[in-house]
């Protein structure tokens, strides 16, 4: 699909839940060092796709290769190796509400190498600063943070591990437009600074235009369009056109029940 080697290569990925076929043969390449955004309506399997790549959900068929390592059917040790390369920002932040902010941010670092509490706290504060949060936030509990701050802490936790790959699950959902733009800028600047490969899912078009190098549209369990973000407005695909312009009329029909 692109000239850069694929960091993540997905071929014919299928995933069903009972009789519900969510992914019906997804093909997608995420070029190394680029930012790919998957767009699509609610319930089209965007989050399922990310969880299949992480091995949190097992694909029913097809192939997912991360740096050449197969995820589908991989066992614990192999999956752990793949997950070591990935940092993820979850939709709601998914901060551990029993731990203060600094322990949340340094959680993954402490899980992977033995460091003392002082060192862990220093790493947390350093990463909080990267996302524009002051050191005094470190001692707050997640429940004391606003939605935007929770996303930023989640982002700090994802980048604290210096991963090669970053996943962003609906990074701007539930945020006001200004805070959403702050998060988009952070995603853009941090991934570029780290030289990381980014895979995001969203239906926020402002976010897509800000953070994407490439865009893939997921519809009825398949990628129906993939291309550079500059070509999004002239994709020549009626489904993409309807989605990016948010029109109720078009080939995509939305059930009312």
């Amino acid at each position: 699909m692109t000239e850069a080697p694929a960091k993540i290569a997905i071929r014919g990925l299928h995933k069903s839940f009972g009789r519900k076929h969510v992914l019906r043969g997804v093909d997608l390449d995420v070029p190394a060092g680029s930012s790919v955004v998957v767009i699509g309506g609610s319930g089209t399997g965007k989050s399922v796709l990310l969880k299949c790549i992480l091995g949190i959900l097992q694909g029913d068929g097809g192939s997912i290769r991360v740096d050449g390592s197969e995820v589908v059917g991989a066992s614990g040790g192999d999956l752990e190796g793949i997950r070591h390369k990935v940092g993820m920002l979850f939709q709601g932040g998914a901060l551990f509400d029993s731990l203060p902010v600094w322990e949340n941010v340094s959680f993954g670092v402490r899980a992977r190498r033995k460091i003392g509490r002082d060192e862990a706290r220093r790493i947390a504060v350093e990463n909080l600063e990267k996302v524009g949060l002051a050191a005094d936030v470190a001692d707050l509990m997640p429940a004391e943070l606003s939605g935007g701050m929770q996303k930023r802490v989640g982002l700090a936790r994802a980048v604290a591990l210096q991963p090669e790959i970053l996943f962003f699950d609906e990074p701007t959902t539930g945020l006001d437009p200004i805070m959403a733009d702050v998060i988009n800028n952070l995603i853009r600047s941090l991934t570029r600074a780290m030289g990381a490969t980014a895979l995001s899912i969203t239906h926020d078009m402002a976010s897509v235009r800000k953070i994407a190098d490439y865009v893939a549209m997921l519809y009825e369990g398949r990628v129906i369009w993939f291309g550079p973000v500059e070509e999004l407005d002239r994709s020549g695909n009626d489904f993409v056109d309807q989605f990016i312009h948010g029109r109720a009329e078009g080939p995509i029909t939305v059930g009312t029940r």
């Binding site: 070591h84 993820m88 709601g92 551990f96």
Partner: peptide, 16 residues
């Protein structure tokens, strides 16, 4: 609550 707010998935991604 940890399950529905994806905290359990987050643990998995953080090598725990």
């Amino acid at each position: 609550t940890m399950r529905v707010t994806e905290q359990i998935d987050a643990l998995t991604t953080l090598s725990t």
